[in-house]
Design a binder for these strands. Structure first.
Length: 580
DNA sequence: GCCGTTTTCGGCCCGACTGTTTTCAGTCG
């Protein structure tokens, strides 16, 4: 008997499935820990670098943290039948629209449930009608304020999307931090949260402040012109929203507790849960104010974050690692990675000039690289297939190499390398002939078309490129555009294994809407001994500023300087590339 | 639902703010 071959669900699909079950269970009144278990499974699936469905097939799903017997069975059921019985039961019991209610700020499972039971509110549309007709205020436990807040939340929801790009949010966060630093009652301040952990997208700005005069800090900050509204304000805590629709949270503590506060609000939530569990076993209780010795009640306050970890017998854990992905164990065992720093980068192997779609000349790009302290830069302009006629024909590529050599004669203090960003065409061919590629210092191959091809076809294309001895690297290897386009169907493990076998470098493209490879994929590559390159993909002199985002993503992937080829001195890089 | 050099059962991180209540539940991070 043949079973119909079912397409394996993506990690994202499984994550969404478990998140939906979690939401339904919360609405149903399940214990919070059961709900959390489903949410944790969803998060684990969403972030995992390898195919979760494939792991389930092979029976080793339970090797993932937080995945137990029940979750494993539910995944198997989904693979087998295309659905999960528990979810169908819940769907039969409650309209799916009630889950939307819980996504409104200020509405959790309890309020959503009350609205549904008391008023028959089944989704946002019926809630809006009920609130406008003034019926919400009559629900026990709710009042006029609740009703108004719900209406405001629904109106605001239209304008607000979820997460914003790190590169968009960071400058705004810096502006707020700079403003706070100008206040004389503030002894220290930083942004914390996912921004400090360098997540590629962030939901809000968390600001932490050390001060002996919280009242004046609150008064000062709540009047900042960047804020469109202040939504919550107590003596030491404030929640606001910027004109750019970003949520801002501010917390103030005395300077002697600043380390505790910064640690607490840097998160991640998972890291803190794990850290507190660990602390508890050692006989300590960790809060945002201190570390308390449970037996004696003695409270240890920490001016710095390092002291928090030190009190628990741990070395400082860099924020980028705080995701509960093994950093506590590594810290305990003294094997935390020595993470790469921006200053480790000696060169940039992927920049564009006005020969293709860049906006600056070769000379201007060279000088800008030198200004930033780089020792070498490689021009990888697009080859001919790029749309709008901006790509270079083979003879133009050769002409450009001559121009670069000429420019080298006029610019001192930085080495100019010749290169190309060639297209891997839809049929796997490369759009420049090998004899041209062979004359370049460094060649990156990228996919810019045929994004919707099936995995097999995509992998064939990537394999053809990696097996070409004239191609050194794969550019933005999964093609994702954050918030706009999912990766094409690439088998990351296959990609990494082939890169290891062929010695192909995989790029971490530092443009903040790409960050591709992602941190989890970079970690997988690094664990397989694949060499990485962190490149800006700059299209203008300012584009070099993107490198810091690439370094952040790499650090989140446990990447060390030794994993990254453009930390090498030029001579060693050349010998690695086979151009002594 | 998950998990165990305290445990296979009984825990599971901890505190601030809001709104509706007269002492606290719900939500959030």
């Amino acid at each position: 008997m043949t079973r119909p071959e079912r397409r394996l669900p993506t990690n994202r699909e499984l994550a969404d499935l478990f998140q939906t079950i979690a939401d339904y269970l919360a609405f149903d009144g399940a214990t919070v820990y059961r709900v959390l278990a489903y949410e944790k499974a969803a998060e684990t699936f969403r972030e995992h670098a390898l195919s979760v469905a494939e792991m389930a097939r092979q029976g080793n799903l339970r090797s993932l943290p937080g995945i137990g017997e029940t979750t494993e069975k539910k995944v198997a059921e989904y693979l087998e039948t295309g659905t999960v019985g528990l979810l169908e039961t819940l769907r039969a019991r409650y309209p799916e629209g009630v889950l939307e209610l819980m996504r409104l700020p200020g509405v959790g499972p309890k309020k959503a449930r009350k609205l549904w039971e008391a008023l028959g509110v089944a989704d946002l549309a019926t809630l809006e009608v009920a609130a406008e007709e003034g019926r919400v205020r009559d629900v026990p436990g709710m009042g006029v304020r609740t009703e108004q807040n719900l209406l405001a939340a629904m109106a605001a929801r239209e304008r607000r999307s979820g997460r914003q790009l790190l590169g968009v949010v960071e400058p705004q966060a810096w502006a707020l931090v700079e403003a706070l630093r100008s206040h004389q009652a503030i002894e220290a301040t930083d942004y914390a949260g996912s921004l400090r952990r360098r997540r590629s997208t962030v939901r809000d700005i968390d600001l932490v402040v050390a001060s002996r005069d919280p009242a004046s800090v609150m008064a000062f900050f709540s009047a900042r012109p960047e804020l469109a509204s202040v939504e919550q304000q107590g003596p030491t805590k404030l929640a606001a929203r910027t004109h750019t629709e970003l949520a801002v949270d501010l917390r103030v503590v005395p300077p002697e507790s600043y380390g505790n506060l910064l640690q607490h609000f840097t998160g991640s939530a998972d890291h803190n849960v794990a850290l507190r569990g660990y602390a508890q076993r050692l006989g300590f209780k960790v809060s945002e104010y201190n570390v308390e010795e449970t037996a004696t009640g003695r409270r240890i306050v920490c001016r710095t974050e390092a002291q928090v970890y030190d009190t628990l017998g741990l070395p400082f854990i860099p924020p980028e690692l705080r995701e509960d992905r093994g950093e506590l164990e590594a810290a305990r065992e003294g094997r935390l990675p020595q993470l790469i720093e921006l200053s480790d980068l000696r060169g940039d192997l992927h920049v564009h000039s006005d020969w293709s779609d860049g906006r600056a000349t070769i000379q201007a790009m060279a000088l800008a690289a030198r200004e930033r302290g780089l020792e070498y830069v490689c021009f990888c302009d697009h080859s001919r297939s790029l749309g709008m006629g901006k790509g270079l024909e083979p003879e133009q590529v050769l002409e450009q190499t001559e121009v670069i050599r000429h420019a080298q004669g006029e610019v001192e203090g930085i080495a100019l390398l010749t290169g190309s960003e060639v297209d891997i065409l839809a049929d796997g061919r490369i759009d420049l002939p090998d004899e041209v590629l062979a004359r370049l210092d460094f060649v990156t191959a990228s996919i810019h078309s045929g994004f919707s091809q099936p995995e097999e076809q995509i992998m064939k294309r990537l394999a053809a490129a990696m097996e070409n001895p004239n191609i050194h690297a794969i550019g933005h290897p999964t093609g994702r555009l954050l918030g706009r386009r999912d990766p094409y169907h690439v088998d990351v493990r296959g990609l990494v294994e082939l890169a290891a076998k062929t010695g192909t470098i995989l790029e971490i493209n530092a443009a903040y809407h790409r960050l591709d490879l992602s941190a989890t994929n970079a970690r997988l590559a690094r664990d397989h001994g694949v060499r990485l390159a962190i490149n800006s993909d700059a299209h203008s002199p300012a584009g070099y500023d993107l490198l810091r985002f690439g370094v952040g993503e790499a650090r989140r992937g446990w990447v060390e300087a030794g994993d990254v080829v453009n930390t090498l001195p030029l001579k060693e890089l050349r010998s690695l590339l086979g151009h002594p």
